[in-house]
Deep mutational scan, measured.
Amino acid sequence: SADYSSLTVVQLKDLLTKRNLSVGGLKNELVQRLIKDDEESKGE
């Protein structure tokens, strides 16, 4: 998976916004949300 932890919070929020995901929470939560979304989209 992508190394989201190396991105800035601003970059993470931009990715979340593009996916229509919540941008609330700490950086670690944003990273986990993106990883979870990646895993769910692979399952389709």
Rank of each mutant, 00 (worst) to 15 (best):
T17I: 12
I35P: 02
R33F: 04
L16P: 00
D37P: 01
K13D: 02
S1W: 14
E40V: 10
Q11K: 06
L21Q: 04
G25D: 01
K18V: 07
L12S: 00
V31T: 04
Y4K: 00
I35H: 07
G25K: 01
V10E: 15
T8H: 05
L12D: 00
T8G: 05
L15G: 00
S41E: 08
S5E: 13
L12N: 00
Q32H: 08
Q11V: 06
R33N: 03
K18W: 06
E39F: 09
E40D: 12
S1L: 13
G43N: 13
E44R: 12
V10L: 13
L30E: 01
S22M: 07
Q11D: 06
L7K: 04
K42W: 09
Y4Q: 01
I35R: 08
L34S: 00
A2N: 12
L30N: 00
T8V: 02
L30T: 01
L34R: 00
G43Q: 12
E39C: 09
V10P: 13
E39A: 11
R19K: 05
R33C: 03
L16R: 00
N20E: 06
K13M: 11
G25Q: 02
E39K: 10
K27I: 07
V31N: 01
D38S: 04
L30M: 10
R19A: 03
D37V: 03
Y4S: 00
E39I: 12
S41A: 12
E39S: 08
I35W: 06
D37L: 04
L12V: 02
K42E: 09
R33Y: 04
S22A: 11
S22C: 07
E44D: 12
V10W: 12
L26M: 11
G25F: 02
L15F: 04
D38I: 05
K42P: 07
S1R: 14
D3M: 11
Y4H: 01
N20Q: 09
V9E: 08
D3S: 09
V9T: 08
N20F: 07
N20T: 05
K36Q: 12
L30W: 06
D3A: 10
S41C: 08
G25T: 02
G24F: 14
E40G: 09
L7I: 02
D14K: 13
G24L: 15
D38T: 04
L15V: 05
L34W: 00
D38K: 03
Y4V: 01
V31S: 03
V23H: 07
E39R: 10
R33W: 04
Q11F: 04
L21D: 01
S22N: 08
T17Q: 12
S22P: 15
K42N: 11
I35E: 08
L16Y: 00
N28S: 12
S41V: 08
T17L: 14
A2W: 12
A2E: 11
L30S: 00
D37H: 12
A2L: 14
N28K: 11
L12A: 00
K27S: 04
Y4R: 01
V23F: 06
D3L: 11
D38N: 04
K42Q: 11
K18Q: 12
I35Q: 10
E40L: 13
S6T: 11
D38G: 04
D14F: 13
L34A: 01
N20G: 15
K27E: 05
I35T: 08
D38A: 04
L34K: 00
S5A: 13
V31K: 03
S41Q: 14
I35M: 11
K27H: 08
D3F: 15
L26C: 07
E39Y: 10
S41F: 09
D38E: 05
Y4A: 01
I35A: 06
S1D: 09
K36P: 00
N28M: 11
A2G: 10
K27W: 08
L26A: 13
L30Q: 03
V9A: 05
E40H: 11
T17E: 10
Y4P: 01
L7F: 08
G25C: 02
Q11L: 05
Q11T: 05
K36N: 11
A2C: 10
A2H: 13
V23Q: 07
K42H: 11
S5P: 06
V23K: 07
V23G: 06
S6V: 09
K13F: 05
K36S: 08
K27C: 05
D37F: 13
G43D: 10
G24C: 14
D37K: 05
I35K: 08
V31C: 05
G43H: 13
L16T: 01
E44C: 11
L34V: 02
D14A: 14
A2Y: 14
D38M: 05
S22Q: 08
S1P: 13
D38V: 04
E44F: 14
L12F: 00
L26Q: 12
L16F: 01
R33A: 06
E29C: 06
G24H: 15
R33V: 03
G24I: 15
L34D: 02
S1T: 13
L30R: 00
S41I: 10
G25H: 02
I35F: 06
K13P: 00
E44Q: 14
G43W: 11
L26E: 15
D3R: 11
Q32V: 07
L26T: 15
E29A: 07
K36M: 09
K13H: 07
K27L: 07
I35C: 07
K13G: 03
E40S: 12
L16Q: 01
I35V: 10
L16K: 00
K42C: 06
T8D: 07
S1N: 12
K18N: 08
G25V: 01
S22R: 07
K36C: 09
K13I: 14
L7Y: 07
L12Q: 00
K36I: 08
K36D: 14
S5L: 10
G43V: 12
L30Y: 03
N28L: 09
L30P: 00
L15D: 03
L7H: 04
T17C: 09
E29R: 04
E40N: 12
V9R: 05
A2M: 15
N28P: 10
V23Y: 06
E29N: 05
E40A: 13
T17K: 15
L12I: 05
V31A: 04
A2Q: 13
D37A: 11
V10C: 12
Y4M: 01
V9L: 12
R33M: 05
S5W: 15
D14G: 08
K13T: 07
Q11W: 03
S6P: 04
I35N: 06
